[in-house]
């Protein structure tokens, strides 16, 4: 598994190939389309992230020392953002997820585009990822 920092760098490089906002958004939406479908079992009210204009679901599992995330949204841009976050953090160790600085969002050159209410959704997703990782970390150290 690649390091979190390396995956972030990879995403930044991919986005740097596009000059226009149209292409960037098309790519982002494409990432959302490629996001593996969340198990319908996990599309529950409990897994819904509050504070987003669209519906966002996120679920995590812990396997062999690594956290695996699934996510979905009914809005395509948010789903693309969720797809990026899953790609960066899924399959990583809890401690690495908790400690990782998140730089790629600023570096893909879309920060101003994702500002305010949208980034609230982004921030809410990111917060959930970190909280889940923290929960798995404390559970695994307790056992």
């Amino acid at each position: 598994m690649a390091l979190i920092a390396d995956i972030q760098q990879e995403i930044v490089e991919e986005f740097s190939l596009f000059d226009t906002w149209e292409e960037k958004y098309e790519y982002l939406i494409d990432l959302g389309k490629k996001l593996p479908a969340i198990d319908p079992l996990y599309k529950t009210e409990e897994n819904k992230i509050k504070g987003c204009q669209s519906q966002v679901w996120m679920h995590s599992e812990y396997k062999d020392g690594h956290v695996f995330f699934q996510a979905d949204s009914d809005a395509m841009i948010v789903k693309g953002l969720a797809g990026m976050l899953v790609r960066v953090f899924s399959g990583q160790k809890p401690a690495d997820i908790v400690g990782a600085p998140v730089t790629f969002i600023d570096d893909i050159g879309m920060t101003s585009h994702l500002a305010q209410t949208r980034s609230n959704g982004l921030r809410a997703m990111l917060k959930q990822i970190k909280l889940d990782a923290l929960a798995w970390q404390s559970k695994s150290s307790a056992t």
């Binding site: 906002w21 958004y25 204009q53 669209s54 009914d74 809005a75 395509m76 841009i77 948010v78 585009h113 949208r118």
Partner: peptide
Amino acid sequence: GIHPQDLGVLLDQQGIAVRTG
């Protein structure tokens, strides 16, 4: 087949302020 939020984001990209939700 399109979420209003997606439309709002892409209209904003073009300098157009609408409300969604």
